[in-house]
Amino acid sequence: MSKTMMDRRAFLAASSAAGAIAVVASGNLVIGSNGAWAMSTKALSGDEAAMLVRMARATYPHPMLDDAIYGKVIHGLDEKASADPALLRSLQEGAATLKAKKFETLDEAGQTAVLKEIETSAPFQTVRGECVVGIYNNPDVWKVLGYEGASAELGGYINRGFSDIDWLQDA
C-alpha cells in the first residue's frame, strides 16, 4: 500500500515542471497532471510509464485530451509487457532514451525533434502503433472529435441530420 500511495508534494512538484504531463507519485503509480486519473504499473516502473505517457501525448498531441486517454494506452502496453520480456526491454530502452534527453523538460518542438530522431526505433513504433488504435478507437475521444459512433440502434441518421449541412451555396 505504501508503495502505491500518492505523495502529494511530489505530485505537485512534478505537475508544475515545464512540460510535465503524467507524473509519478511513487514506485509504480502514475498520476495524471490534473490528478483526475491514476494507474499502477505491473512491469514498467512508474517513471518509465510516465515517460511513455509523455511520449504518447507528444506523438499524437491533443491539448483537449486528458492524460487518462494516453495513460490507458500505456497501461495496456504495460500489461502486454508483463508477459513479454522482449517488449518490456524495448519499452524500457525507449523510456531511458527519452530520460537521457530530458524529454520531460522540453517544449513541444523539442519533444518532436527528439521523437523524430527515434522515429524508426522499435519502442517508438510500438508506442505509436498502440496509440493510433488506442487513442482513436476510444469513444471518449470520439466525443471530443465530434464523431458519433454507432448509429443503427438510434435509427441511423435518416431523421437525425444526414443532410443538414447549411453553409454550402448551391448545394
Binding site: T59, T112, R128, V132, V133, Y136, N137, L145, G146, Y147
Partner: peptide, 27 residues
Amino acid sequence: LGVPFMAAFLEPGAWGRDFSSAMEGYA
C-alpha cells in the same frame, strides 16, 4: 471513414501535430 479508421488510413505512419490537428478537424 470513422475516427478509428481515419486515424489508421489518412496518412499511415504519420504522427505529430500535423496529423493530430487533422484528426481534430474530423467533424
